[in-house]
Amino acid sequence: MPGRHPHAWTRGREHEHPPVVSEQRAHFEYVRAGKRRDGRAGSGIAGSGIMSADRSFRHRLAERGVDRTLLLLLPGVLFLVLLFCYPFAYGLGLSFQPQKGGGPFANYVTFFTDPYLRGTVWITFKLGLPAALVNVIASVPVALRTRGSFRGKRLMTILLVVPVTLGTVLTAEGLLSYLGPNGWFNKVLTALHIVDRPVALVHNYWGVLASLLITGFPFAYLLTLSYLTGIDPTLERAAATLGAGWWQRFRRVTLPLLAPGLAITFCLSFVLAFSVFPSAQLVGDPRGSTHVISIEAYHAAFQQYDYSMGSAIAMVMAALMLVVVALVLAWRATFYRGATGGKG
């Protein structure tokens, strides 16, 4: 396992994760905002004591949605420029200035020609795709069951959301002791004579996957639940009176209306899982079978001190995520995406 240098750790987070993650978020927000843009309230808040010519100019601006409420966007724009656009552009530029020379694309050539480096892409997909898929699929029945109000709903929501608050590191530490060779899980299995000796569940692929599922599920669940509560429940009742059993109601009514939301949920879950770093580092396989792309970026930048290479790997990572997200969104564009009749 690479040494955990507190200083390097902090810098690694600043330089790699926020740009990539926030870029994806910005992209989603843009996509989601797109369908609501028509509903934007371009309320003209014009000052009272201004000249009439000035007022009519303000009026015209207000009709186009330019008024003082635009100032509300300022913190967001500042945040985006300072903490995303600039670091991203800086990293992009850096990736084209290889420290070892060989032209602007040398880093990228190295990454894709070296089988070990190239392999990290496959390893990351092998973790990220199943984790996102399982989380999204698992969130649907849970969300279906918990959408109404029932006794103990709050407690259940808290239990489901707690893993988010714990953070990946604590989850990883917990997994290490719980699923480890001397952990409770293996102790129970051996005591019940289900297995002869402890099953290896940490420091390998399964450990990382488990960690991704635990930390990713609450996100997927909360998103799915919000999409589901936006669907008018009388639609299912109508389907029932028309002869649809529970499976047909889900398959023919709820699922088609939920699908666009599930696509977004999948994208966000995937991006979270794809940029896995702490759990791959902590519960992962020290011999390299869970050597994901983010670890490699960290490795290049802060252990080999090749910032340029580290940036290049981060850019590859961003591009890969974008490709997956674009594919999913393109597929989503073929779904019905209009109103779902509910309160959402």
Binding site: R237, A238, A240, T241, L242, G245, L257, Y336, G338, A339
Partner: peptide, 20 residues
């Protein structure tokens, strides 16, 4: 008998048409 096997037609106040 559950609603799907009762076979009565119903018209809802908000119509409940399938939007998709």
């Amino acid at each position: 008998v559950p609603p799907e096997r009762r076979g009565f037609g119903m018209v809802f106040q908000n119509y409940a048409l399938f939007p998709h």
